[in-house]
């Protein structure tokens, strides 16, 4: 556990040692704001809630989360520090957990900096703050699931661009899985179980279920199990592919 905490601290500090963290946070806040106000018509719809803010998170994360996860392992492979790191007396699972938690915590920091939206909507009206809290939780869980996918992809390449593109593609599949367009394309020829599975696998589906204000344990369990599964795969891939 101590090793996880040490790795976590080093990785988190690593984000802030370069301009990456600040660039990421600024872009995240600007994009979130623009989508909310211009595309989501935050003021025009005349409702005191953050629905237009959260609705775009899956699509915003599609671009930003792979940017966060791509360097996790690829950078260590490229610079050769992975050998230094993995010949220290730590378990591979500790290394995977420490890195992931740092990235997830960083995503949480970026997300929490959107608090002015929450304040604004409370000044303008009387929103259901329970729904907003649940939406924040959903958004953070979804970010975690996407980061786990990205960490796993990053573990098998030393090229950050490849890590970014592959992660974005995988995350897109997971996000779009339950969308009407996908279901429409599948229905008619694909078996019913595939349609059901597609709906069940959707990040966006589970995300919007929680943002409606009902924190169903099944939705939470879904995101947590995606994280555990991909991090487990991440650890196995690191053990198998240590020296490529």
């Amino acid at each position: 556990m101590r090793a996880v905490a040490t790795i976590f601290r080093r990785e988190l500090a690593g984000y802030f040692a370069t301009p990456l963290a600040y660039v990421f946070i600024v872009i995240f806040l600007v994009m979130a704001g623009m989508l909310t106000f211009f595309v989501g018509n935050f003021f025009g719809r005349g409702q005191a809630d953050l629905e237009p803010f959260f609705a775009f998170h899956p699509w915003l994360y599609l671009v930003l989360i792979p940017a966060l996860s791509m360097r996790l392992w690829a950078e260590e492979r490229r610079s050769g520090t992975i050998e230094l790191f993995l010949t220290l007396p730590i378990r591979t699972t500790e290394a995977v957990a420490g890195k992931f938690l740092a990235a997830w915590c960083f995503a949480g920091i970026a997300l929490s900096l959107t608090f002015p939206f929450w304040i604004t909507v409370n000044i303008l009206g009387r929103p259901d703050n329970g729904v907003i809290a649940a939406s924040y939780l959903a958004s953070w869980l979804m970010a975690g699931a996407m980061l786990a996918v990205g960490a796993c992809v990053s573990a098998v390449t030393k090229n950050q661009v490849i890590a970014f593109v592959v992660t974005a593609a995988l995350v897109f599949l997971f996000t779009a899985a339950g969308a009407p367009a996908v279901l429409g394309a599948l229905s008619g020829w694909a078996p019913q179980w595939l349609l059901d599975a597609s709906v069940q696998m959707s990040f966006a589906g589970h995300f919007s279920a929680i943002t409606r204000g009902v924190v169903d344990l099944r939705d939470v369990f879904y995101f947590v199990s995606v994280m555990v599964a991909f991090l487990f795969a991440n650890a196995i891939l690191i053990d198998l592919e240590k020296a490529e």
Binding site: I7, R10, S79, G80, T81, L84, T87, L88, I90
Partner: peptide, 28 residues
């Protein structure tokens, strides 16, 4: 084991102080 890798790679954005502290913590 104490191991010096070929080319001595280390985390480029860390200072030796932070790097050695990290290794010391990992080593307990």
């Amino acid at each position: 084991i104490g191991y010096l890798l070929e080319g001595a790679p280390a985390y480029p954005d860390m200072t030796p102080a932070a790097f050695l502290e990290f290794v010391a913590h990992i080593r307990g």
